[in-house]
Amino acid sequence: MHVVVNAAQSVDGKLATHRREQLRISGPEDFDRVDRLRASVDAIMVGVGTVVADDPHLTLDEEDRRVERLRNGRPGNPARVVADSTGRTPTDARILDDAAETFLLISEATDEDRREALADAGADVIVAGEERVDLAAGLDALSDRGIDRLMVEGGGELIFSLFDAGLVDELSVYVGSMVIGGRDAPTLADGDGFVDEFSELELTGTEQLDDGIVLSYDVID
């Protein structure tokens, strides 16, 4: 599976305020870039924290792109994936509607009643890991279901965990012209952080969009 991480951050590396409120960091040109990237993948992945905080839909904005996918024998919208160790996804979340297939990666720590409730709400529930989602096992299960190209949109805990597991192939970051600040504000890669072995990147492109810049990287094995 090929994994592409995409995010928008401030100049000081923040994804949102310390209150974890959703911010508009980029603009129309970058929104279109992200929509094109979404249209190119088989699935879009977020962590459960993003679902609880923002209730995203994770579908394409442009109808022409949905039509083109259908013409190519693909679903109109990419599938949606949530990493949700304990089954916290609300059963009325927009991500569980019928606009696209939705996979929930949970752990064995999620009780059976909750699994059934999420399945009844429209999720394809995949158990991967004991106390927390085992991302490598979860991505293998998605690959078995036909997901070959995965886009990850956050949040920082999920992105760090994917880097930590060596599962990221590409990284695209839009850097917006603002400073957010706040020691507790979420960053691109939260989690425990690296100490002595760091993920190495190779810069492959830059593109100025709106009032910011997109930095594109390949992850070096």
Rank of each mutant, 00 (worst) to 15 (best):
V173S: 06
I106C: 15
L58S: 02
L70D: 05
T89E: 13
V3D: 10
A136C: 08
I220L: 12
D124T: 14
G156Q: 04
G73N: 06
L96G: 08
L96A: 02
T91F: 14
Q9H: 15
S161F: 11
G181I: 01
D42L: 07
E63S: 14
I213G: 08
V82A: 11
L60N: 11
A99I: 01
T50L: 11
A100V: 06
R114P: 05
A79T: 06
V214P: 00
F103R: 01
S40L: 03
P186T: 03
A121R: 11
L150Y: 05
H18D: 13
L215S: 07
F160A: 04
A141V: 09
S40V: 04
D164L: 14
G155L: 01
R88D: 15
P186W: 00
G49A: 13
A100W: 02
T110V: 10
R71Y: 00
E108L: 11
I106W: 05
N6F: 04
F31T: 12
E112H: 02
G146N: 09
R88A: 09
T204F: 02
S161G: 15
T102L: 06
R19V: 07
V125A: 01
I220K: 10
A43F: 13
L188E: 09
G73A: 13
Q22D: 09
D190A: 15
E200Y: 08
R114Y: 15
P75V: 01
V125M: 02
L96C: 13
E200I: 13
L142D: 07
L23C: 15
P75L: 05
T17R: 02
V168T: 01
G76Q: 09
A53Y: 09
P75T: 00
G193F: 10
V67Q: 12
A93K: 00
E170P: 12
R94C: 10
A79K: 06
T89Y: 12
I180A: 03
I180N: 03
D211S: 05
E68K: 12
F194G: 12
L203T: 08
L162I: 08
E101W: 04
S85V: 07
G176F: 08
D144W: 08
V214S: 03
G205Y: 04
E62V: 14
G156H: 00
R69T: 09
E29S: 06
D12S: 05
R145N: 03
R69I: 02
I126H: 04
L188I: 02
D97H: 05
V152E: 06
E157W: 09
F103N: 05
G87R: 09
L188F: 12
R88Q: 11
T17Y: 13
S199W: 00
P28Q: 12
D32Q: 12
T89P: 03
G87T: 03
V67E: 15
G181Q: 08
N72H: 15
M1S: 05
D54A: 02
L60E: 00
L37M: 14
T86I: 10
S85R: 07
S161E: 07
R149N: 13
L70M: 13
T17G: 12
R114H: 14
V175P: 01
G73P: 11
S143E: 04
E29V: 13
A137W: 08
